[in-house]
Amino acid sequence: MTTANTEPAPAPTQDREDLLTVSGLVKHFPIRKGLLQRQTGAVQAVDGLDFSVAKGETLSLVGESGCGKTTTGRLLTRLLEPTAGKIVFDGRDISHLSDGKMRPLRRDIQMIFQDPYGSLNPRHTVGKIVGAPYRLQNVKTEGGTKKAVQELLELVGLSPEHYNRYPHEFSGGQRQRIGIARTLALRPKLIVADEPVSALDVSIQAQVVNLLEDLQNEFDLTYVMIAHDLSVVRHVSDRVAVMYLGKIVEIADRVSLYEKPMHPYTLALLSAVPIPDTKRKAKRERIRLTGDVPSPINPPPACRFHTRCWKAQDICKTVEPPLLQLAPGHQAACHFPENQPGEKPVDVT
């Protein structure tokens, strides 16, 4: 995707008010074998994440399949119990709250699922699906649940007449709109969107993305967007966090990350983004990573990317690079970062 020189930078963050703060977040899935089910290892899906999300902001998590993006999303919504670390939402530590204590907070934290086909119960009508949050939270609405659901359907671009229809009668894009309507029912503060457009046709993706942006502006929503399509991420994000094998290796505002990526892994990801300009494509350096992503059961020591990195040296194999701020609002975890302040940026976009 070509870089526009006039692309506006995200709003300043010095006065930001954080809605979500994550520190040292860890999730290991135990591997058990034998008759006594003794633990013989663990899948280190998420291994020490630190980040925050301001009110009204969109933070996108990107990376290869298996890097821990979806697990992170499920931890933030407390669909999974963290192994360690802290999740603070709106000033309250929700890291290890019981189901009963989390129940009232479900109004404020919702999730949009990746699969618009599997996330809707095929035996329930649209009215019952979208109205479920009202029933589960015992929320009374003015004019009744049916009226509230029909207003939600109109809000996401569907017809109130769809109230009595079933999911199989809708296209993929329409099903995702139904899922979004269900998510919005209780007017949440934070929405975790797990690959919300990846299962949709390209022609429908833009409609859903624009809908999410319009809803954010109208209801002052905060998004954590999980995605792998870097073109979509660039369009919707305020800041972007790049994950590799359970860790964040770089986090920055949208403009800085796309124009001056610092971590070698980020450079490699951006160099793979298709661009329509053939002249610019011919000049761009395509970075091809060798080898497969290591197993999260036994990740490489120190820098987890050193087994595939063309800049790796001995220190990368022995000392884990901390996630440090190398430029204003731009953090990277690398001993030999690219695009340091004052250097000519590498053209990968």
Rank of each mutant, 00 (worst) to 15 (best):
A54E: 04
R74G: 07
I226T: 04
M225G: 01
D115V: 15
V197L: 03
L230C: 05
H96M: 15
Q44F: 07
E218Y: 08
V197M: 02
Q313D: 14
E161H: 03
A45P: 05
A227T: 04
R32H: 10
R177V: 04
L158Q: 00
S198A: 11
I112D: 01
L215T: 04
R92S: 14
V149M: 04
N298M: 05
I287L: 13
L59R: 00
V293D: 01
T222L: 08
D292Q: 09
E343F: 05
H162K: 04
L215H: 01
F170I: 08
S231L: 12
M111F: 09
R106N: 10
A252K: 04
A9M: 08
K317A: 15
L80K: 01
A11N: 11
K317W: 10
N298S: 07
T2W: 08
T71R: 02
K281Q: 14
K317H: 12
I109N: 01
T183L: 11
I287M: 08
V240P: 00
F29Q: 02
M225L: 15
E338Y: 13
A206R: 03
D194I: 12
S271W: 07
H96D: 15
Q150E: 07
F29M: 08
D214I: 02
D292L: 13
P276W: 08
E154T: 05
K55E: 11
D277G: 09
A333M: 10
C309W: 02
P104I: 15
V43R: 01
R165N: 11
C334A: 13
V240F: 02
L19Q: 01
V156P: 00
C67G: 05
G127T: 08
L326N: 13
E218T: 15
I112L: 11
A42D: 13
V46E: 00
L211H: 02
A268K: 01
A332W: 02
T21M: 14
G143S: 03
L155P: 00
R284L: 13
K283V: 13
T58L: 04
Q331I: 05
E338K: 03
I251N: 01
Y258T: 06
L270C: 12
A272E: 09
G329E: 11
P133W: 10
Q39I: 15
D238R: 03
Q150C: 03
H263F: 06
D194Q: 07
R103T: 15
